[in-house]
Design a protein around this nucleic acid. Structure first.
Lengths: 288, 288
DNA sequence: TCGACATATCGGTTACTCCGATAGAACCTA
DNA sequence: TAGGTTCTATCGGAGTAACCGATATGTCGA
């Protein structure tokens, strides 16, 4: 009913080497086995694969036509085996990472490239979230690895490690915002203007601030609000540099800030090789 | 050493139906067989495919990951079987047709489209040749089917049949050629100007004509020569209509000519289904 | 708690793979 | 032309894997 892959291997090898005996030697089997195997395959398929009139078997037109199909069947089966092998070694089939918008390094794309090369079969899923969202996704098991701005303390079931690449944030407003005209800026002056603050899905709404604080769950959205002149916001430097022309930083004492980034993962579910590799890359200082 | 496709079928079916028993029923086997087969597959692959803690087996993450690989392996093997089936029924793996440039019908592309749909796995090879070249290619077995302007007689080992679509040829020269100025054209007048004549690879060179006759093995080349004003030529109507702007027909008695087209094939090698289909299409008058 | 339905396991039969030996055919060389 | 070499086809037998039937065990729902 079904084709034994032994037969296909024998077919392909015999076709390549032009000899049943040679194929048998390559496979560490007897010539009679190959002869019988291929004869049975021919009976099974209903076509002659080799012309045996000469001393050595010659591929028939049908054999020539079927050879690529046999090869593909074998390579497909091989990739199944390979993938199974990886899984058996503990390789995760899918890696879900949740990233903060604050976390972005110049070599991020390069790292993804290396990842694709090193783990070609691992399905990579990137989620974007901030702070508590990151923690929630990792704790629930929805994500394997999370990156977020360093927290003072973590839940006991979360492991964490500081990344080698700190993130820089500044306070930004749209060019033309009244705050850009204020001399000698300080924290007090900021209170007179609307703040655009990151608020995650986990955060409960704050007591009414009288419209003095708008919020959004992503830095990208906050930046859009800032660009439209709705207020001032703390934003990642790279994000503004890349997409935020039309914003300018506020010169306040203590700004810009360097923020440490932590990677977090669940202690309940140990990291697979792919996740461990990603973690190791970001924990190690960049080469350049 | 190799994966039995029985096991893959059992795996895929069990995954689809969520039950070993159901898979067994679908396959006409016992439940115990499926259970053992899948257990062996898991041992062989080194990963658990199903979580058996519940009443019915649940795909594990690894199983979910490997399922598409198993499916692809089976479909690949299936296409091997299908192709073998076609070959077993006598379907030729490749069809080589040699066409004359004179043979071209408006629905030729449509016919090729139908062919691709009906014989998706047959490799189609189109050669272009004229007269004796067509006969030689078919007789030698290089081509299965040939189309050429009807010959008075054919070699005994060639079968032939007239096509329903005649070809029209005319005598053409470049606009501006002196022949276009001649009133009351006849055969004699033509002799004063250089002829561009089709000469096949099989034809022996003619006795020296004093530069009064140039030749080429394809109508396309002849047409190019005519366009450059080198002389007059008998050319297929469709070719000039499609690519020969800059040529004009000569008004001679007896022209344009309708030429019958014959299909020829070797009696020694009967036509396969694909070739027979092509022949039948062109022998039957077009529907429109 | 019980019935219905699922899976796991075990022993026995069947079928297939593979081996080893042998015979015949093709090719090379003396 | 004869003989040696190397190939393939065939056959009988040993080992193994697939499959079946029966049975034990587990899960779910009433």
């Amino acid at each position: 009913m079904s084709i034994a892959s032994e037969a296909l291997i024998a077919f392909v090898l015999a076709a390549e080497q032009g000899s049943f005996s040679a194929a048998a030697r390559s496979l560490g089997k007897r010539q009679s086995t190959i002869s019988e195997t291929i004869a049975n395959l021919e009976i099974d398929l209903g076509v002659a694969l080799f012309d045996r009139s000469g001393r050595q078997p010659q591929l028939t037109a049908a054999g020539q036509c079927l050879l690529p199909y046999a090869r593909q069947t074998l390579t497909t089966q091989d990739s199944l085996r390979q993938q199974a092998q990886l899984l058996a070694e503990g390789q995760e089939p899918r890696l879900t990472i949740v990233l903060s918008d604050t976390f972005h390094t110049g070599d991020f794309e390069a790292v993804l490239g290396s990842f694709a090369q090193r783990f070609p079969r691992v399905e990579l899923e990137c989620l974007v979230g901030e702070q508590d969202d990151v923690l929630a996704l990792v704790q629930s098991g929805r994500a394997h690895l999370g990156m977020l701005t360093a927290q003072p303390a973590y839940s006991a079931d979360l492991a964490h490690q500081a990344l080698a690449r700190p993130a820089e944030t500044s306070l930004y407003v749209a060019t033309g915002h009244p705050l850009t005209q204020v001399a000698a800026l300080d924290e007090t002056a900021l209170r007179d203007w609307r703040e655009l603050r990151l608020r995650t899905y986990q955060d409960l709404p704050q007591p009414d601030s009288g419209g003095q604080c708008w919020s959004a769950p992503s830095y990208l959205l906050l930046m859009e609000m800032a660009l439209l002149g709705f207020g001032w916001a703390e934003l990642p430097h790279w994000l503004v540099a890349r997409y935020g022309s039309g914003l300018q930083p506020l010169a306040l004492p203590g700004w810009p800030r360097q923020q440490r980034i932590d990677a977090v993962w669940s202690r309940r579910q140990p990291l697979g090789p792919a996740a461990a590799w990603v973690l190791q890359v970001f924990v190690t200082p960049p080469a350049a």
